[in-house]
Design a protein around this nucleic acid. Structure first.
Lengths: 230, 230
DNA sequence: CCACTAAATGAATGACGTTCATTTAGAATG
DNA sequence: CATTCTAAATGAACGTCATTCATTTAGTGG
């Protein structure tokens, strides 16, 4: 359905073979990769509010409608951006030996990448992997690491999904306002919660989102690591 | 900023005291509670795509602009809906003794409620608790349970946040298409991942989202439970 | 030179959220 | 009872978007 889907499978990177049937016009001003890069730049400069098809077309010196020759919807552009971002997620540690440390590195970098792009989370979370080749490549690296670490085959996907779910939720946390737990006028009626918030504020020097992420990730690592073969 | 914020603190429920200074017109057709209930009904019938201010006004037999006397934006309506939904999350088990089972019950019901309302997740995840009294009440019940279970004070909030992050991410999973892990034409280049997906499909009888949620939740329970005082 | 085609154009469309000047109608005041 | 005040509702705008479509443009292979 999406342009990302309808694009021909491209196992050897963006520069596909020149297989065309008929006369072809001049080198196109636009292509999916150019749109993706321009979109990412625009989002970086204007945020997701300023990211409109008109603004994207403007940065490419093109009419808005021209985009629809290469992309079937705005959501399609977001899918392309999302997949591109995924290539910035660090999976290198899965090539080495230490499963725990590899998951740690992967999870932190994954969270960091998407905490700057939370509007993409509703897209990525339900996107078929076939529509996102770089995301699929990430899954391959991660599941290879799980497999080598002695994870039972039938638990690999659920374990990855569980960690990923935690990552997505945690990415939102990073963007939450600092006073999100301030009870305001209702503090008196919520003594336990208010006390807990207070104690955390006294104690903590790291950012609250990082404290929670570390705590949850280490718990997951401990709990999931127990599934590995001895 | 939001109407939920600017609404007067109301410690005794919706029926506040009749403190008015001057003449008051007839009983208003609209109020925040009525808007919230109508919004929830509309979302249930038409989904979040069909949920527009115009459609909401229509179900209330009112002009769209009339809504803005009681609510300052569409986001405000979503905040009201979100807070209302939170009252359907089950926290009763925290009153009993078993911390693990209480967290289990809470987490599953929390996920089930919001898996039908994933468009609210970007809202709820970064919403100050002061703007959502029922959500705050939930936190109070949960943190009281953690406290009684022997959790160190300074870890209570991070632990709740971690579990909640996992819940939000998992809520998206529930809505993912069944073929989300189908590698399609790229299966050959992702052998480990494809094999893992295959094994899960053979093995599993539960819904994949439930398998992943159970696995992650039990891991979190084990890992976080270890923090409790002996 | 011709025929074909992908790509770009520019105008138009239809939603949608939101604003605002104006009207409405009950309640308090004297 | 008449006046005055005020919250609430109205209906007509506005501006912003994503998206569509008939038409034009310009290389390329035959």
């Amino acid at each position: 359905m999406t342009a990302a889907t309808s694009a021909p499978a491209d196992p050897h990177g963006p520069a596909a073979g020149p297989r065309r049937r008929a006369g072809r016009p001049a080198a196109a001003v636009l292509d999916q990769n150019g749109i993706t890069v321009a979109a990412l730049q625009l989002i970086g400069k204007s945020g997701y509010d300023g990211f409109t098809m008109a603004a994207l077309a403007r940065t490419l010196n093109v009419a808005p409608s021209a985009l629809y020759n290469h992309v079937s919807s705005k959501r399609d552009v977001l899918v392309l951006v999302q997949d591109h971002l995924t290539s910035f997620v660090d999976v290198t540690a899965f090539a080495a030996g230490d499963w725990e440390q590899a998951v740690r590195d992967w999870a932190w970098s994954y969270r960091d990448v998407f905490s700057k792009h939370t509007p993409l989370i509703p897209v990525i979370a339900v996107l078929p992997v076939a529509d996102a080749p770089k995301t699929l490549a990430m899954y391959e690296a991660v599941s290879a690491g799980f497999s080598r670490a002695g994870f039972p085959q039938e638990r690999i996907v659920p374990a990855i999904v569980a960690i990923e779910s935690f990552i997505f939720g945690s990415a939102y946390d990073v963007t939450a306002p600092a006073d999100i737990f301030d009870s305001g006028t209702m503090a008196a009626s919520t003594p336990h919660f208010t006390a807990a918030v207070q104690r955390l504020a006294e104690e903590g020097h790291d950012k609250p989102a990082d404290v929670a992420f570390r705590l949850g990730l280490e718990a997951l690592l401990a709990g999931l690591g127990a599934l590995r073969a001895a």
